[in-house]
Each structure stands twice: as structure tokens, then as C-alpha cells.
Design a protein around this nucleic acid. Structure first.
Lengths: 155, 155
DNA sequence: AAAAATATGTTGCATTTACAACAATATTAT
DNA sequence: ATAATATTGTTGTAAATGCAACATATTTTT
């Protein structure tokens, strides 16, 4: 059997990133399930991002939460049905957009959820220090920057 | 509007890892599409992992390629239909398992694909040096290790 | 010895997600 | 001015994925 002188899938950085993303996703789902939160992780990500970017339009939100427009629209349908956000038709660059705003109830629930998550994580001793986490985050951003050159990401 | 003194979704390491995974996945799909390879990225990951772990059983493969058993079984159906692998019923710890083996044709196609990928990546100047990549990989593994303590991953 | 739990793989179903096409509108090019 | 292109959001459809249940067989418990 001839040897293939290439890094194999399992040994690649691709694999480590996917695996880490997977672990974090499972972990996040476990936290949301254990705390019996009223939102899915996706809904929370959308709501939290709207909170940080008031009056953002749907397409820009889609780019931020890493979903396509269709998917984002459906997540927003759910948040709207729960009366946590409102969609307000407006004009941006002379184009019709739907600007997103959090309702009073949405704000209340978001603060409640974020507090619960914060408290929960506080009680977990993570061997990874905040400084190490910062370094890893920075490294990931640099890595992405080096990739973006030859990848056309169009969301 | 009261301020929530928590890292928000967009600022979290969770987000950076998800985003990086997303970018890599899109990039991988683009490479596979541009090179017109005969396998999907998932099929390639499975085949390459079987190559590295001869006679692995389905469940162990599932853990390695980060899919559940059902999904893994379906990917293997496809590889088997293309005559790239064989499934051989065997006994491991007194239990029936299906051991996976690559066919001659599977070996040929895998080498061909891996060579094409290697050549393609060689011609891309990545600002991230191999040393930096190694450091990032190591860091990700440490990070995962620190998470694994309070996450029950059961695949 | 019988019952309960475990391991492995498959099937069915529901959910998530993406992609393509469309609608409506505005901008740009010819 | 008309046509082509671009922007934003929605709908429809297909694919990927996971989860629960099942089948089969084995080990462990009682």
C-alpha cells in the first residue's frame, strides 16, 4: 500500500476546527436545555445580535449570525410570533428594508437569559484562562483573514 | 436601556469558532467543486479516515468523522455503491460489527483526490505559516480538553 | 435461569439548512 | 427611455443531519 504523503483529514486543521465547533455546539445546547431557556440557541443568537445592533436589517443580521436570508427570516418569524421583536419596514439607501427592533418583553427575556447563562458559566471552572481564550480568538481571526483571500463568501 | 455586562454572542469565542468552521467548510466545498472531484467532502472524509484506520467499524468511524451512526451508515452506503469500500461482518469483543475496507478502486480514487487537493493547496500562498497553523491546532486541542470536563459527548 | 442493560447497525421521521426562483423596487448602462 | 443589473426579503424544494425506535445479539445483574 503506497503511502500518501499528505496530511489526512483527521490530522488537518480543518478537522480540529470542525471538531471544536461541534463540541461547543453540543455544549451550548446542553446549557440551554439544562437551564430550560425559552429560546433556541439560534433564536438567542439572533435576539442578542439585534440587541447589539439596533435597527439592523435582515440581510445584515443574516451575515452576522451566519445563516442565509431564508433561514434568518424564519428564525425572525418565530421571534416575532413570541412578541420579542418587531419588524418595521423602512428605507435604507433608497431600498425597502425591514428593520428589527426588540420589544420590551424581548429585552426582559434577553436580560434574563443572559444572566442565567452568565451565572451558570461562572460556576464552571474552566482551565482555559480568559487570556488564553483571548489569544485563541485572536489567532482564529488572523487565520480567517488569511483564508478570506481566496474564498468568496457570499451570504 | 440597562446594559448587560456579558460578552455577547458576536464577541464570544463560540462565535469565532463557528465562523471559522463555516469559512473552512465553504472553502472546502469550493475546492471540491472547482477540482470536480467524484466524492463529496463527507464521503472523502470517511474514505480517508478508513484509509488511516484499516478495518475500523462503523461506530468508531462515526466518532472520528463527527457524524452520528445513522448518517455515517448512509455515507457508507454511497461509498459501497460506488465500489470504493466493502463492509465485512466480523466479530469484535464478541459482538457483530461491520468492518470497513477500501477496495483497489477506492484506494486509487483516494490517492488521486488527495494528490489533486495537495497540488491545489500548494499553489495557494497562505499567509499563515505551517508553524502558526500547528500552534493554532494545538491551542484548539487544549481548549477542547478544557471543555470536555463538563460536556457529555455521546455519539 | 430470567431479566435488565449494553453494543452495533438500520429505518423512519422531524428539523435544520441551503439553494434557487420569485416579487418588488431601485440603480445603472445602453 | 428602455433594458439590464442589483438589493432585499419570501417561498418552495431538496439535501443533510440528528434523534428516537427498532432488531439483533451479548453481557451483566438479580
Amino acid at each position: 500500500m503506497t503511502d500518501i504523503k499528505t496530511k489526512h483529514y483527521i490530522d488537518s486543521i480543518y478537522y480540529d476546527i470542525e471538531l471544536t465547533a461541534r463540541v461547543m455546539k453540543v455544549l451550548g445546547a446542553q446549557v440551554f436545555s439544562k437551564l430550560q431557556l425559552s429560546l433556541t440557541p439560534e433564536e438567542h443568537a439572533a435576539l442578542d445580535t439585534i440587541y447589539c445592533n439596533p435597527d439592523i436589517c435582515q440581510r445584515d443580521l443574516a451575515k452576522l449570525i451566519l445563516k442565509d436570508r431564508a433561514n434568518t427570516g424564519r428564525i425572525l418569524n418565530s421571534l416575532e410570533e413570541k412578541n420579542l421583536i418587531t419588524r418595521c419596514v423602512d428605507v435604507k439607501n433608497n431600498r425597502l428594508v425591514k428593520r428589527l427592533a426588540i420589544t420590551v418583553e424581548g429585552n426582559r427575556q434577553l436580560e434574563d437569559i443572559n444572566k442565567k447563562i452568565k451565572d451558570f458559566l461562572k460556576n464552571i471552572s474552566c482551565k482555559f484562562s480568559p487570556e488564553e481564550t483571548d489569544r485563541l480568538q485572536h489567532s482564529l481571526r488572523e487565520f480567517r483573514k488569511s483564508l478570506k483571500e481566496f474564498a468568496e463568501m457570499n451570504i
